[in-house]
Amino acid sequence: MRCVTNFRDLVSTPFSGVVNAIGWTRQLQGDFSEIVKKVALSGNITTIGREELCELRLTEQGQLAREILLSDLELLTAHGASPVLNVIQHYDQDDDYPFFPTDVYSFHVDRSPIPTDTFLCTYYGDSSEILPNSQGKLKIDIPEIRAELRKLYSGADDGFEAFLSEHFFDLHYQAQVGARPISLGVGNLWRLAVDHPESRVLPCIHRAPREESGRARLLMIC
């Protein structure tokens, strides 16, 4: 990972070598919890549109937080991204395969057929974690897990790898013994490498937090 001090460097610094996560580290002003409290929640994940954000009646500290959110939305949009601002109480968990959950609480990488990056920032609540690639092992390469996946698959042998990809099993990792996940912190805007055909680095392994604090999470992602 590498840290920078402005948005221009965040989007222009190339990934190289083992560096597949770049963060614009910041100490943000304002009360982001006020925005979480004022938004009308609709389910486990509530998306806040620009218009709704602008219409919230906020204190001076809440207004400072809103200005930062609007600025980040504008910066990312001008860069060509499609940022989404969410209040997250919790994500749905994958119960289809108890021995191999494929939800975002599992360490995983993002994949795209075209060159792109993942941007994210936690403004309030528990933050995402990344895992150095040297400290993670692809789950489908773990013999006992691969054996269980074989039991799920009923097709021809030459279609097994496609089966793993179609069900996103090949995106998930298991932290090795002694691994040290890295918290991305609150207020920092991150750019993570994605698995795509033109990538020159390994994709960044990351996961969503378990919301252990009990607080809803305010997250911008694209």
Rank of each mutant, 00 (worst) to 15 (best):
I35K: 00
D110H: 11
D110F: 04
K137F: 03
N86E: 12
V109P: 00
P98T: 07
T47D: 08
V19C: 14
L219Y: 00
P98E: 06
G214H: 05
L41A: 15
Q29G: 10
S112N: 14
H90E: 14
Q174Y: 06
L53F: 04
L152K: 04
L28Q: 11
A21L: 01
G159T: 06
P143Y: 09
P203S: 15
E212T: 02
S42Y: 06
D31R: 03
F7G: 03
L184I: 06
D126V: 00
T5A: 15
R57I: 11
V104S: 12
S106V: 09
M220C: 13
A216I: 00
A81M: 11
Y173D: 08
V109K: 00
G136V: 04
W24V: 13
W190N: 10
Q89F: 07
S213A: 05
F100Q: 11
G49Q: 08
P98V: 06
L53P: 04
T13F: 03
P181Y: 01
E212Y: 00
Y153N: 02
E161W: 08
G23L: 01
L218Q: 04
I35S: 01
S42I: 02
R111A: 13
Q174V: 07
E52K: 07
S112K: 06
A21Q: 04
L189M: 12
V11G: 02
